[in-house]
Protein backbone atom coordinates (compact mmCIF):
# COMPACT_ATOMS: atom_id res chain seq x y z
CA UNK A 1 0.00 0.00 0.00
CA UNK A 2 1.33 3.35 -0.88
CA UNK A 3 1.10 5.26 2.33
CA UNK A 4 1.72 8.66 0.89
CA UNK A 5 -0.94 8.44 -1.74
CA UNK A 6 -3.51 7.09 0.69
CA UNK A 7 -2.87 9.79 3.23
CA UNK A 8 -2.86 12.43 0.52
CA UNK A 9 -6.14 11.18 -0.79
CA UNK A 10 -7.62 11.28 2.68
CA UNK A 11 -6.39 14.79 3.22
CA UNK A 12 -7.69 15.92 -0.11
CA UNK A 13 -11.01 14.35 0.58
CA UNK A 14 -11.39 16.18 3.84
CA UNK A 15 -10.30 19.47 2.37
CA UNK A 16 -13.11 19.27 -0.10
CA UNK A 17 -15.61 19.99 2.58
CA UNK A 18 -13.44 21.75 5.16
CA UNK A 19 -12.13 24.83 3.47
CA UNK A 20 -9.02 26.60 4.73
CA UNK A 21 -8.56 24.48 7.84
CA UNK A 22 -5.55 22.44 6.81
CA UNK A 23 -4.24 22.21 10.33
CA UNK A 24 -7.49 20.87 11.72
CA UNK A 25 -7.65 18.38 8.90
CA UNK A 26 -4.17 17.11 9.53
CA UNK A 27 -4.70 16.88 13.24
CA UNK A 28 -7.81 14.84 12.77
CA UNK A 29 -5.88 12.44 10.55
CA UNK A 30 -3.18 12.25 13.19
CA UNK A 31 -5.77 11.19 15.74
CA UNK A 32 -7.12 8.56 13.38
CA UNK A 33 -3.89 6.85 12.42
CA UNK A 34 -2.30 7.15 15.85
CA UNK A 35 -5.14 5.07 17.34
CA UNK A 36 -6.46 8.02 19.24
CA UNK A 37 -9.75 9.77 19.46
CA UNK A 38 -10.57 13.26 18.40
CA UNK A 39 -12.34 16.01 20.30
CA UNK A 40 -13.38 19.11 18.46
CA UNK A 41 -14.35 22.03 20.57
CA UNK A 42 -15.74 25.24 19.25
CA UNK A 43 -18.75 27.46 18.97
CA UNK A 44 -21.63 26.13 16.90
CA UNK A 45 -21.60 26.44 13.16
CA UNK A 46 -17.91 26.44 12.32
CA UNK A 47 -17.83 22.92 10.88
CA UNK A 48 -17.13 20.60 13.80
CA UNK A 49 -19.70 18.09 12.79
CA UNK A 50 -18.83 18.47 9.16
CA UNK A 51 -15.20 17.54 9.81
CA UNK A 52 -16.17 14.60 11.97
CA UNK A 53 -18.66 13.44 9.44
CA UNK A 54 -16.25 13.83 6.55
CA UNK A 55 -13.63 11.81 8.35
CA UNK A 56 -16.11 9.06 9.00
CA UNK A 57 -17.31 9.08 5.42
CA UNK A 58 -13.78 8.82 4.06
CA UNK A 59 -13.33 5.46 5.69
CA UNK A 60 -15.13 2.50 4.22
CA UNK A 61 -16.43 1.18 7.48
CA UNK A 62 -19.49 1.33 9.65
CA UNK A 63 -20.37 4.75 10.93
CA UNK A 64 -22.77 5.79 13.64
CA UNK A 65 -23.70 9.14 14.90
CA UNK A 66 -25.09 9.83 18.33
CA UNK A 67 -26.50 13.16 19.18
CA UNK A 68 -25.82 13.55 22.89
CA UNK A 69 -28.60 15.04 24.96
CA UNK A 70 -29.11 15.40 28.64
CA UNK A 71 -31.57 12.46 28.75
CA UNK A 72 -29.31 10.04 26.90
CA UNK A 73 -28.60 6.89 28.94
CA UNK A 74 -25.54 4.65 28.83
CA UNK A 75 -27.59 1.82 27.48
CA UNK A 76 -28.62 4.03 24.60
CA UNK A 77 -25.08 3.90 23.28
CA UNK A 78 -23.70 0.61 24.60
CA UNK A 79 -26.74 -1.52 24.02
CA UNK A 80 -29.10 -3.53 26.16
CA UNK A 81 -29.63 -7.11 27.20
CA UNK A 82 -33.08 -8.27 26.38
CA UNK A 83 -34.88 -11.59 26.80
CA UNK A 84 -35.17 -13.58 23.62
CA UNK A 85 -38.30 -15.63 23.98
CA UNK A 86 -37.52 -17.88 21.05
CA UNK A 87 -34.11 -18.93 22.33
CA UNK A 88 -35.30 -18.63 25.88
CA UNK A 89 -32.23 -16.66 26.89
CA UNK A 90 -30.97 -13.20 27.43
CA UNK A 91 -29.35 -11.60 24.46
CA UNK A 92 -27.17 -8.56 24.11
CA UNK A 93 -28.40 -6.02 21.61
CA UNK A 94 -25.41 -3.98 20.50
CA UNK A 95 -25.86 -0.25 20.64
CA UNK A 96 -24.52 2.39 18.26
CA UNK A 97 -21.12 2.16 19.97
CA UNK A 98 -20.29 -0.95 17.97
CA UNK A 99 -19.01 0.74 14.90
CA UNK A 100 -15.76 1.74 13.24
CA UNK A 101 -16.28 5.43 13.41
CA UNK A 102 -18.48 6.99 16.01
CA UNK A 103 -19.49 10.61 15.87
CA UNK A 104 -20.48 11.73 19.34
CA UNK A 105 -22.03 15.08 18.70
CA UNK A 106 -22.13 17.61 21.53
CA UNK A 107 -20.78 15.15 24.00
CA UNK A 108 -20.93 17.60 26.87
CA UNK A 109 -24.70 17.82 26.69
CA UNK A 110 -25.04 14.32 28.12
CA UNK A 111 -24.92 13.53 31.82
CA UNK A 112 -21.60 12.42 33.29
CA UNK A 113 -22.95 8.90 33.63
CA UNK A 114 -23.44 8.56 29.92
CA UNK A 115 -20.21 10.34 29.11
CA UNK A 116 -18.21 7.96 31.24
CA UNK A 117 -19.82 4.96 29.61
CA UNK A 118 -18.52 6.13 26.27
CA UNK A 119 -15.11 7.10 27.57
CA UNK A 120 -14.57 3.72 29.15
CA UNK A 121 -15.24 2.08 25.84
CA UNK A 122 -12.77 4.46 24.20
CA UNK A 123 -10.02 3.52 26.51
CA UNK A 124 -10.38 -0.24 26.48
CA UNK A 125 -11.78 -0.85 23.01
CA UNK A 126 -14.27 -3.19 24.62
CA UNK A 127 -17.51 -3.08 26.55
CA UNK A 128 -18.50 -5.25 29.44
CA UNK A 129 -22.20 -5.77 30.00
CA UNK A 130 -23.58 -8.29 32.48
CA UNK A 131 -20.15 -9.80 33.04
CA UNK A 132 -19.76 -10.42 29.39
CA UNK A 133 -17.10 -8.65 27.42
CA UNK A 134 -17.87 -7.49 23.96
CA UNK A 135 -14.93 -6.32 21.87
CA UNK A 136 -15.41 -3.25 19.75
CA UNK A 137 -14.64 -3.43 16.04
CA UNK A 138 -11.24 -2.44 14.79
CA UNK A 139 -10.41 0.27 14.07
CA UNK A 140 -12.52 2.08 16.58
CA UNK A 141 -12.37 5.82 16.24
CA UNK A 142 -14.43 8.34 18.16
CA UNK A 143 -14.89 11.86 16.97
CA UNK A 144 -16.59 13.94 19.59
CA UNK A 145 -17.60 17.52 19.42
CA UNK A 146 -18.41 19.77 22.27
CA UNK A 147 -19.42 23.33 22.83
CA UNK A 148 -17.14 25.49 24.91
CA UNK A 149 -17.64 24.65 28.53
CA UNK A 150 -19.07 27.91 29.62
CA UNK A 151 -22.12 27.40 27.44
CA UNK A 152 -25.51 26.80 28.97
CA UNK A 153 -26.80 23.31 29.52
CA UNK A 154 -23.50 21.49 29.44
CA UNK A 155 -21.88 18.96 31.70
CA UNK A 156 -18.22 19.74 31.25
CA UNK A 157 -16.01 16.71 30.81
CA UNK A 158 -13.72 16.22 33.77
CA UNK A 159 -9.99 16.40 33.10
CA UNK A 160 -9.57 12.69 33.63
CA UNK A 161 -11.95 12.05 30.79
CA UNK A 162 -10.61 14.72 28.53
CA UNK A 163 -7.32 12.91 28.88
CA UNK A 164 -8.77 10.02 26.89
CA UNK A 165 -8.93 12.11 23.76
CA UNK A 166 -5.68 12.19 21.93
CA UNK A 167 -6.23 15.44 20.10
CA UNK A 168 -8.37 18.34 21.08
CA UNK A 169 -8.70 20.96 18.41
CA UNK A 170 -10.78 23.96 17.69
CA UNK A 171 -11.94 24.95 14.26
CA UNK A 172 -11.97 28.68 14.54
CA UNK A 173 -13.64 31.00 12.10
CA UNK A 174 -12.44 30.67 8.55
CA UNK A 175 -10.57 33.49 6.88
CA UNK A 176 -12.60 35.89 4.79
CA UNK A 177 -11.47 34.30 1.54
CA UNK A 178 -12.29 30.81 2.73
CA UNK A 179 -15.61 31.96 4.08
CA UNK A 180 -16.47 33.43 0.72
CA UNK A 181 -15.78 30.05 -0.89
CA UNK A 182 -17.91 28.32 1.70
CA UNK A 183 -20.81 30.68 1.23
CA UNK A 184 -20.88 30.65 -2.57
CA UNK A 185 -20.34 26.95 -3.01
CA UNK A 186 -23.47 24.88 -3.39
CA UNK A 187 -24.88 22.90 -0.55
CA UNK A 188 -24.12 19.65 -2.34
CA UNK A 189 -20.40 20.23 -2.40
CA UNK A 190 -20.20 20.73 1.30
CA UNK A 191 -22.24 17.69 2.26
CA UNK A 192 -19.94 15.10 3.79
CA UNK A 193 -22.41 12.42 2.90
CA UNK A 194 -21.48 13.00 -0.74
CA UNK A 195 -17.83 12.11 -0.16
CA UNK A 196 -16.61 8.76 -1.31
CA UNK A 197 -14.49 6.39 0.73
CA UNK A 198 -10.75 6.57 0.23
CA UNK A 199 -9.67 4.08 2.87
CA UNK A 200 -11.03 0.77 4.00
CA UNK A 201 -10.76 -0.42 7.56
CA UNK A 202 -7.84 -2.72 6.76
CA UNK A 203 -5.88 0.13 5.32
CA UNK A 204 -6.52 2.17 8.43
CA UNK A 205 -5.20 -0.65 10.58
CA UNK A 206 -2.10 -0.92 8.39
CA UNK A 207 -1.53 2.80 8.62
CA UNK A 208 -1.81 2.55 12.38
CA UNK A 209 0.82 -0.14 12.34
CA UNK A 210 3.06 1.98 10.18
CA UNK A 211 2.84 4.80 12.67
CA UNK A 212 4.23 2.58 15.38
CA UNK A 213 7.27 1.95 13.21
CA UNK A 214 8.15 5.58 12.65
CA UNK A 215 11.53 6.16 14.19
CA UNK A 216 11.78 8.47 17.15
CA UNK A 217 15.29 9.31 18.23
CA UNK A 218 16.25 9.17 21.88
CA UNK A 219 17.04 12.82 22.21
CA UNK A 220 13.54 13.55 20.96
CA UNK A 221 12.08 11.34 23.65
CA UNK A 222 14.08 13.41 26.10
CA UNK A 223 12.75 16.55 24.50
CA UNK A 224 9.24 15.23 24.86
CA UNK A 225 9.87 14.31 28.47
CA UNK A 226 11.29 17.75 29.12
CA UNK A 227 8.15 19.33 27.75
CA UNK A 228 5.94 17.20 29.95
CA UNK A 229 8.17 17.89 32.91
CA UNK A 230 7.86 21.59 32.20
CA UNK A 231 4.07 21.36 32.47
CA UNK A 232 4.44 19.63 35.82
CA UNK A 233 7.06 22.01 37.14
CA UNK A 234 5.25 25.22 36.43
CA UNK A 235 3.02 25.63 39.46
CA UNK A 236 2.84 29.35 38.81
CA UNK A 237 0.75 28.75 35.68
CA UNK A 238 -0.45 25.18 35.80
CA UNK A 239 -2.27 23.49 38.61
CA UNK A 240 -2.15 20.10 36.95
CA UNK A 241 0.50 18.88 34.53
CA UNK A 242 0.41 16.31 31.79
CA UNK A 243 0.01 12.65 32.70
CA UNK A 244 2.13 9.81 31.34
CA UNK A 245 -0.82 8.93 29.14
CA UNK A 246 -0.43 12.37 27.65
CA UNK A 247 3.22 11.59 26.99
CA UNK A 248 2.32 8.38 25.21
CA UNK A 249 -0.25 10.22 23.16
CA UNK A 250 2.26 12.89 22.20
CA UNK A 251 4.77 10.30 21.10
CA UNK A 252 2.22 8.43 18.97
CA UNK A 253 0.88 11.63 17.52
CA UNK A 254 4.37 12.87 16.62
CA UNK A 255 4.99 9.61 14.80
CA UNK A 256 1.70 9.92 12.96
CA UNK A 257 2.43 13.52 12.11
CA UNK A 258 5.78 12.51 10.66
CA UNK A 259 4.13 9.84 8.58
CA UNK A 260 1.55 12.28 7.24
CA UNK A 261 4.39 14.53 6.13
CA UNK A 262 6.00 11.62 4.33
CA UNK A 263 8.81 10.98 6.79
CA UNK A 264 9.67 7.78 8.56
CA UNK A 265 11.36 9.62 11.40
CA UNK A 266 10.21 12.20 13.89
CA UNK A 267 11.83 15.63 14.03
CA UNK A 268 11.63 18.13 16.88
CA UNK A 269 9.17 20.23 14.94
CA UNK A 270 6.61 17.43 15.01
CA UNK A 271 6.60 17.36 18.76
CA UNK A 272 6.70 21.10 19.10
CA UNK A 273 3.87 21.75 16.68
CA UNK A 274 1.62 19.06 18.12
CA UNK A 275 2.14 19.88 21.77
CA UNK A 276 -0.47 22.63 22.05
CA UNK A 277 -3.16 20.37 20.59
CA UNK A 278 -2.18 17.33 22.57
CA UNK A 279 -1.41 18.86 25.91
CA UNK A 280 -3.72 21.82 26.34
CA UNK A 281 -6.77 19.76 27.31
CA UNK A 282 -4.72 17.73 29.76
CA UNK A 283 -3.69 20.58 32.03
CA UNK A 284 -5.52 22.87 34.42
CA UNK A 285 -4.60 26.48 34.69
CA UNK A 286 -4.02 28.20 37.94
CA UNK A 287 -6.26 31.09 37.11
CA UNK A 288 -9.51 29.30 37.88
CA UNK A 289 -12.37 28.10 35.78
CA UNK A 290 -13.42 31.31 34.20
CA UNK A 291 -10.38 31.68 32.01
CA UNK A 292 -9.78 28.01 31.64
CA UNK A 293 -10.66 28.06 27.99
CA UNK A 294 -8.70 25.92 25.59
CA UNK A 295 -7.15 28.83 23.76
CA UNK A 296 -5.74 30.20 27.00
CA UNK A 297 -4.22 26.86 27.82
CA UNK A 298 -2.60 26.60 24.40
CA UNK A 299 -0.95 29.95 24.95
CA UNK A 300 0.46 28.67 28.21
CA UNK A 301 1.72 25.50 26.56
CA UNK A 302 3.35 27.57 23.82
CA UNK A 303 4.99 29.71 26.47
CA UNK A 304 6.33 26.61 28.14
CA UNK A 305 7.70 25.39 24.82
CA UNK A 306 9.79 28.55 24.70
CA UNK A 307 11.58 27.35 27.78
CA UNK A 308 12.41 23.85 26.65
CA UNK A 309 15.62 23.39 24.76
CA UNK A 310 15.38 21.73 21.38
CA UNK A 311 17.94 18.92 21.07
CA UNK A 312 20.61 19.24 18.43
Amino acid sequence: MDVDSKLNALEKNLKQVIKGKDEAVRLSIVALIARGHLLIEDVPGVGKTTLAHALARSIDGSFHRIQFTSDLLPSDIIGVTIYNQKKNSFEFKKGPLFTHVLLADEINRATPKTQSALLEAMNDSQVTVDRKTHPLPKPFFVVATQNPIEYEGTYPLPESQLDRFMVCLDMGYPSKEDERKIIVSSNEDLMPSNLHHVLDTNEVLKLQERVENVKIENSLVTYLLNIIEATRNSPEVLELGVSPRGGIALRKAAQAFALIQGRDYVVPDDIKNLSPYLLAHRVILNTGGEFNVMEERRVIIRDLLEKVEVPL
Binding site: V267, P268, D269, K272, L305, E306, K307, V308, E309, V310, L312
Partner: peptide
Protein backbone atom coordinates in the same frame (compact mmCIF):
# COMPACT_ATOMS: atom_id res chain seq x y z
CA UNK B 1 17.69 30.49 20.33
CA UNK B 2 17.63 27.29 22.26
CA UNK B 3 13.94 26.60 22.05
CA UNK B 4 13.75 27.23 18.31
CA UNK B 5 13.78 24.12 16.19
CA UNK B 6 16.08 24.01 13.18
CA UNK B 7 13.20 24.29 10.77
CA UNK B 8 11.72 27.24 12.57
Amino acid sequence: ERHITPWE
